[in-house]
Structure formats: structure tokens, C-alpha cells
Amino acid sequence: MATAICATGFKGAMGLPSSFHGSWGKSVAGEDYSMLLAKTVPGQVRVAKPVRSRPMMGNVNEGKGLFAPFVVVARSIIGKKRFNQLRGKAISVHSQVINEFCKTIGADNKQRQGLIRLAKKNGEKLGFLA
């Protein structure tokens, strides 16, 4: 079976020559599509920067949880700077206790990290991080 090649150089479907001899870029009115597109689209298109929400400063846990009122009162009595130092020390000691516990039971790093995340979530729920 011989395959025919049309004027454009492409083989037709099933070996038959194609009856299409025009250009895909021409419209019915004879106007070139790329020229039409160049007329409608400006030379430089400006794209606006996406609007980003500003990060919220402050604590989202303020006033939530069983111990939140005590934490707020303690912070106002001893001062914010000293309170944050004490809270950081308490969190550090608690993390060390979790690390020692994981060593004792033979837990790996992934399990240890999971326990520390759980402690943080529980602290947020109870209001210790208010």
C-alpha cells in the first residue's frame, strides 16, 4: 500500500492525502490570528502582586483554657519579660523530662517529637500558653 504525501509534506490519514492546504493561523476573514492577538493584547501586561494577609502578632490562645486566667494574672504580676523567661525554662525542663522518658522506654526520635508536639497541643488547650 502506497502512502501519499500532500503539499504540506505530511502523510494523510490512512495513507490518503489531506485536502487541507491552508494555514491554521488564518481566520475566515483572512486575518492572521497572531496579528489579531497582537492588536488586542497590550505589549506589557502587569500582574498584580498577590495580597498577603499580615501575620497576627499576639497569642491566639489568649483567654482560652482552664489555666489561662492564672497565666494572665501571673504575667501581669511578675512582668512580661520575666514571665516569658520562666515559661521558657519550664518548657525546657518539660522537654528534658519527655526526652528522658523516651530514653527509658526506648522510643525513637519520631515518637519523641510526637510526644513533644502532643505536650504543646495540650498546653495550648489547657491555657498554659495564653
Rank of each mutant, 00 (worst) to 15 (best):
H94P: 00
L118N: 07
F101G: 06
G106T: 08
T104R: 01
Q113Y: 07
R117D: 13
I116C: 08
F101V: 05
G106N: 05
H94T: 15
L115A: 07
L118W: 04
T104S: 09
R117Q: 14
G106W: 03
V97G: 02
E100Y: 01
L115W: 07
A107L: 08
H94M: 14
N109S: 13
N99G: 10
Q113F: 03
K110M: 03
K110L: 06
T104K: 04
N99I: 09
K103L: 07
K120H: 14
R117H: 08
V93W: 06
V93S: 10
F101D: 03
G106Y: 02
Q113S: 09
F101T: 09
A107I: 02
D108W: 02
E100W: 00
A90K: 07
C102H: 01
I116R: 10
L118R: 09
V93D: 15
S95I: 09
A107F: 01
Q96I: 08
R112W: 00
Q111Y: 00
I105S: 06
Q113L: 13
V97I: 15
I105T: 13
R117E: 12
V93K: 10
Q113I: 08
R117W: 01
I116Q: 15
K120L: 13
I91Q: 10
G106M: 02
V93G: 01
E100L: 05
K103E: 04
N99D: 14
S92C: 09
S95Q: 11
I105E: 05
A90Q: 10
Q96M: 11
N109G: 07
I98N: 01
H94L: 15
C102M: 03
I98G: 02
I91C: 05
G106Q: 02
Q96K: 13
R117I: 09
R112T: 13
K103H: 03
A107E: 08
K121C: 12
K103G: 00
I91P: 02
G114Y: 01
R112N: 10
K120G: 09
V97L: 12
F101M: 08
I116A: 08
C102V: 01
E100V: 00
T104G: 06
D108F: 02
G114D: 12
Q96W: 04
E100P: 00
K121R: 15
N109H: 03
A107P: 03
S95R: 14
K110A: 11
G114S: 14
N99T: 12
D108R: 02
K110N: 07
F101E: 06
L118D: 09
F101W: 09
G106L: 02
K120W: 11
F101K: 04
N99A: 14
A90T: 10
K110F: 04
F101Q: 05
K103R: 11
E100N: 08
I105R: 07
E100H: 05
A119Q: 07
T104C: 02
Q113T: 07
A90M: 09
L115Q: 05
K103N: 06
T104P: 03
Q111M: 09
V97E: 11
A107K: 01
R117V: 11
C102Y: 00
Q111R: 03
